[in-house]
């Protein structure tokens, strides 16, 4: 097991407000680390700071020892940290297949001129990507939906396609922002299964924001608990269950 992601002293301050306060942790390959905490705890800010959508005011992010702090979102994604979005990040007017293909953008060969002239180098790369996208959809039993507009899918199907698109390029690190929100129990179980498979079989390091407690307890190897932008506890699901600070954060003082 090797360390993929190292977050050290990450802080985000908006004029006067500390959204993220000196957060540190590591993520190993094949591990699922859940980030939990009440609303406004800074979970989403943590994701945005790691993926480059918010510039941290202090601290560093390293992927396999390489510093990524202050790179732009597309550069960070290219380095291998990919994320999903809480409100769904699919492109509704594009089909399922086209959506998954956008996840393979950086892997595509051929210059602008190659594409304009329809040179075989560009066509070959496109064909390879289509093949790969179809395989991935088949793996998730979504291949029959390939030509459906993403906007016409059910909420659960949209989440699955978004994950397929996000992992299409085989990123070592995946940030999932509330992947189970609004899902039916059946879809939720399927999401669990997908998370297990990505971590267990592909060795992806997964950072997971989730409110569904049973999903967190079942899926996570370790849990990071946040409140008011800071880390208040860290440990295995069993340890977190017993932690007094966590109970207080969620339920208030008894």
């Amino acid at each position: 097991m090797s360390t993929l992601l190292t977050v050290e002293g990450l802080s985000v301050r908006f004029s006067g407000l500390t959204a993220l306060d000196d957060v540190s942790f590591t993520l190993e390959d094949g591990n699922v680390r859940a980030v939990i905490g009440p609303n406004g705890a800074g979970k989403s800010t943590l994701f945005n700071a790691i993926s480059g959508y918010v510039t941290p005011t202090a601290g560093t992010v390293h992927l396999r020892g390489q510093e990524l702090t202050r790179l732009t979102p597309h550069e960070i994604a290219e380095q291998g940290i990919r994320r999903t979005f809480q409100n769904g990040g699919l492109f509704p007017a594009l089909t399922v297949l086209e959506n998954v293909l956008t996840g393979l953008h950086a892997q595509t060969q051929g210059s602008f001129l190659d594409i304009l002239l329809g040179r075989s180098k560009a066509l070959k790369s496109e064909a390879d990507n289509i093949h790969r996208a179809r395989e991935l959809l088949k793996l998730m039993s979504m291949d029959h939906m390939a030509d459906t507009r993403a906007g016409d899918l059910s909420g659960g199907q949209q989440r699955i396609v978004e994950i397929v698109r996000t992992v299409a390029s085989d990123p070592p690190v995946l940030l999932l922002d509330e992947p189970a929100v609004g899902l039916s129990p059946v879809a939720r179980a399927q999401m669990m299964e997908i998370i297990h498979r990505l971590a267990g079989e592909k060795g992806v390091g997964i950072l997971l924001i989730e409110h569904a407690v049973e999903l967190v307890m079942a899926a996570a190897d370790r849990i990071l608990v946040m409140a008011a932008g800071a880390r208040i506890a860290e440990g295995t699901p069993e340890e977190i269950r017993e932690d007094r600070a966590v109970l207080e954060a969620y339920l208030g003082h008894s």
């Binding site: 979102p73 597309h74 550069e75 007017a93 956008t102």
Partner: peptide, 22 residues
């Protein structure tokens, strides 16, 4: 091509587009 898809992706959701290394 992947370029054409990226053009439409920007229209549909620019923030999500960047997250795909585009």
């Amino acid at each position: 091509s992947h370029f054409g898809r990226a053009v439409m992706a920007v229209r549909e959701n620019e923030i999500a587009t960047a997250s795909l290394a585009i």
